[in-house]
C-alpha cells in the first residue's frame, strides 16, 4: 500500500504538493503548540515532590498493616466475647426479668387481668404447684389475690401479698418446668439470686421441686424471700 502510494507520488505532482501542504500544516501546528507550552521543569519537580510525600506516607501503614490488622481482629474478638457473655440468654436473668415485667404490668401498673380471690387460690395451687405450702401472710403482708401466668413459658402461680401500702409478688413454678440454670442451685434453698432494676428488686431461689421468684421493693423482696426460704 505504501509502495503504491510512493509510486503514485513520484508520478503525480498535484498529490505531492498536497502532501507537502499537509506536512507543512502539521509542522506549523506542532511549532505553534510547542511554543505556547510553558516549561515543565517546575511542574515535574512539584509532581516528584508529591509522589515522594505519598511514598513516605505509605511506608508506615504498609509495613504495619498485618500487626495492625491482627490487633484490630483481637479487639473485635474480645468485644464479641464480652458482648456475648453479657447479652447471651442468661436463664436466671431471663426468669427474673420475666417475673419483674409481670409484677410491673399487673401489680404496679394494674393492667386488667383476671385475678382470683384468696378463697380460690387453693384450687390454683392444686393445679399448678400442688406440693407448695402457701403461707397466708408473709412479712406481715396478707395474701391478696392470685392468678396463673407463664414464666419462661412454664406455668406459674402468681400470688400478690399486700397491705394497701406495699405489695409483693411471689411466683411459684415447678422446678422441672424451668431451664436447669434459671435458679441459683438445684437443691439449695439457701441460695438467693437477687437483681434490682429501677427500684424493683427480684429474689429467686429453688427448693423442694419448686422455683420461687419474689418481686417487690428491693428490701421487701429480700425479706419475703428470706422468710420463704426458711418456711419451704
Amino acid at each position: 500500500m505504501q509502495s503504491e502510494l510512493a509510486l503514485h507520488l513520484e508520478s503525480c505532482a498535484a498529490c505531492r504538493a498536497r502532501l507537502q501542504q499537509e506536512y507543512e500544516l502539521d509542522r506549523l501546528i506542532t511549532a505553534a503548540v510547542n511554543r505556547a507550552t510553558p516549561a515543565a521543569d517546575e511542574l515535574v519537580a512539584h509532581i516528584e515532590k508529591r509522589l515522594e510525600s505519598k511514598l513516605t506516607r505509605r511506608f508506615f501503614p504498609w509495613q504495619w498493616r498485618w500487626p495492625a490488622l491482627a490487633g484490630a481482629a483481637a479487639v473485635v474478638l474480645f468485644c464479641a466475647i464480652l458482648l456475648t457473655r453479657f447479652t447471651s440468654s442468661n436463664s436466671m436473668h431471663a426468669l427474673c426479668q420475666d417475673a419483674m415485667d409481670d409484677h410491673r404490668s399487673e401489680v404496679v401498673l394494674r393492667e386488667p387481668r383476671r385475678w382470683h380471690s384468696v378463697s380460690e387460690i387453693n384450687d390454683l395451687v392444686r393445679r399448678t404447684v400442688p406440693q407448695a405450702r402457701i403461707p397466708q401472710s408473709i412479712a406481715g403482708l396478707p395474701l391478696e389475690k392470685g392468678r396463673i401466668c407463664g414464666l419462661l413459658q412454664a406455668q406459674a402461680l402468681h400470688l400478690v401479698y399486700g397491705d394497701g401500702a406495699q405489695q409483693v409478688s411471689v411466683f411459684f413454678v415447678l422446678r422441672q418446668d424451668l431451664p436447669s440454670d434459671s435458679l441459683p442451685l438445684q437443691n439449695s434453698a439457701k441460695r438467693l439470686h437477687q437483681e434490682n432494676d429501677a427500684g424493683i428488686g427480684v429474689a429467686s431461689f429453688a427448693g423442694q421441686g419448686l422455683g420461687v421468684v419474689v418481686v417487690g421493693t428491693p428490701r421487701l423482696a429480700r425479706n419475703v424471700a428470706d422468710q420463704l426460704v426458711r418456711s419451704l
Partner: peptide, 26 residues
C-alpha cells in the same frame, strides 16, 4: 519524568489555562 511536557502541551490546549492544565497533568 517521561512525557510530562507532552501531557502539559495537550492539557494546555484542552484547558486553555495554565494552572488548570498543570493540575490535570499532576
Amino acid at each position: 519524568m517521561p512525557h510530562v511536557r507532552s501531557l502539559l502541551r495537550t492539557a494546555m490546549r484542552l484547558c486553555r489555562r495554565q494552572e488548570v492544565a498543570e493540575d490535570l497533568v499532576q
